[in-house]
């Protein structure tokens, strides 16, 4: 586990980032380090900041917003139990309350009873995240972000987007845009029963599906091999 105490979770409204304890400017600096480490993952994301019991001034909140804007991240909420802080967030046009809706509408997520043992392949700074399972079709305009791996039981339609720190598995047709290993993991894979994404990214690599109309869809796995994304039929091993 990382030492900065930052927890990043995906929710239906966007990412919810819980900052570590300690002074505000330190916590914010720690978060900036995360942004610098994996800008691709955060680019274009909507982030709600859970600041814990802290009391933020308007200047503090503005600093957070301006920081995120530099990384092309929208700060849509400041989540705090403190009334004064909620007031500040509302004044800046952000959501303020603790989102109860999140627990209700959020995709099914495996509970974390005990932290899983750290795996030797992963560098120690990486959080070991459990996967996120989504049992519905992602439609045009819908976006899913998660720091771990993502499994979708359903289709990913054109115009939908998945950004995952780990692997992306689609038990269905993948036709939207997908980014696996968005925090830089080149070993990440993307697989689908019908792999025909508008655009497929793994770490910093980008590929498009062939333009020609596909014949019969077969399950495929995409991965990075010698610096290029290649898709292989699932049976061919």
């Amino acid at each position: 586990m990382s030492t900065d105490g930052i927890i990043i979770k995906g929710s239906r409204d966007g990412l919810v980032v819980t900052l570590g304890s300690g002074a505000w400017h330190n916590a914010l600096a720690d978060f900036e380090a995360r942004l610098t480490a994996s800008p691709e993952f955060f680019k274009g994301a909507r982030v709600g900041l859970n600041v814990g019991p802290r009391r933020l001034t308007e200047i503090d909140a503005r600093a957070a917003r301006d920081l995120l804007v530099r990384y092309d991240v929208i700060l849509w909420a400041i989540i705090s139990a403190d009334e004064e802080t909620q007031h500040v967030a509302a004044m800046l046009g952000m959501d303020a309350a603790v989102p109860q809706r999140e627990t209700k509408t959020r995709p099914v997520e495996a509970p974390v009873p005990t932290p899983p043992p750290p795996q030797p392949e992963h560098s120690s700074s990486d959080e070991v995240e459990l996967g996120l399972v989504v049992r519905r079709t992602l439609r045009s305009g819908q976006s899913l972000r998660h720091t771990g791996s993502v499994a979708v039981v359903g289709d990913v339609n054109p115009g939908a987007e998945i950004v995952a720190g780990g692997d992306v598995v689609v038990w269905g047709k993948l036709r939207g845009t997908v980014h696996a290993g968005a925090m830089g993991d080149e070993a990440a894979i993307v697989c689908a029963l019908d792999l025909a994404p508008t655009q497929l990214r793994i770490a910093q690599h980008i590929a498009r599906s062939p333009e020609d109309r596909r014949r019969k869809p077969v399950p495929e796995v995409a991965r990075v091999r010698s610096g290029k994304i290649v898709a292989e039929s699932w049976e061919a091993k």
């Binding site: 439609r139 045009s140 305009g141 819908q142 339609n157 054109p158 115009g159």
Partner: peptide, 12 residues
């Protein structure tokens, strides 16, 4: 169809 798909999601 792309727009209809967006609307299906919003209606849901």
């Amino acid at each position: 169809v792309r727009d209809a798909d967006r609307v299906v999601g919003l209606v849901e």
